[in-house]
């Protein structure tokens, strides 16, 4: 193994992840090459320094902040009424998609049936009564006011002519 090959495997040598064969070759080279030996030692030193850094624990109250944030996001994710009606509730709110589509369909169907029943009743009884009332009003009006009836006007003119002296 030469220095160039050694350099290529230096990272794995420092991490002790080389297979036995490559490791033996590296060690043989490093024994005879002070430059590579020095570099390997320094890179190993770097790894040791980084590993020696203290692990910082999450601040106290981390879980409380997290739970508050999750609740907040759930509230934010709750859609408006129209969106809930049309698209349903997104899964991140309840954990699964809860659609209000069936409820909306029921409401619309009920409204349609109710309206149609209302019109059916009107035609059956209300409309007939209304027509009768209008006809009755017309007859009453016509008999009470002869001027409103063309035939009565003609008759009236004819009577005037007959009554006029010759």
């Amino acid at each position: 193994m030469n220095c160039k090959e050694c350099y290529r495997y230096l990272g794995e040598y420092v991490d002790r992840t080389l297979d036995d064969c490559a490791l033996a070759e590296m060690e043989a080279h490093i024994r005879v090459c002070p430059k590579c030996a020095s570099l390997a030692a320094e890179l190993g030193g770097v790894a040791s320094l980084v590993k020696s850094l203290d692990r910082q624990a999450a601040p106290s109250g981390f879980e409380d902040r997290l739970n508050a944030q999750i609740l907040h996001r759930k509230e934010e994710a709750k859609p408006g009424l129209l969106r809930r009606l049309l698209l349903g509730v997104p899964p991140e709110v309840y954990g699964y998609r809860r659609s209000l589509g069936p409820a909306l369909a029921t409401v619309l169907l009920t409204a349609a049936v109710g309206t149609s029943l209302m019109f059916t009743n009107y035609n059956a009884s209300g409309d007939a009564a209304y027509i009768n009332a209008v006809q009755q009003q017309h007859v009453t009006f016509a008999s009470a006011n002869p001027l409103s009836d063309e035939s009565a006007l003609i008759l009236s003119d004819r009577m005037k002519e007959l009554n006029e002296p010759l």
Partner: peptide, 23 residues
């Protein structure tokens, strides 16, 4: 990944040389 770790260590070695040589 191996290459990046190696490059990172090489750069750190330059920055931390006084400490590395004494570890």
């Amino acid at each position: 990944v191996k290459s990046r770790i190696f490059k990172a260590r090489t750069q750190l070695r330059r920055m931390l040389l006084p400490y590395v040589q004494n570890t």
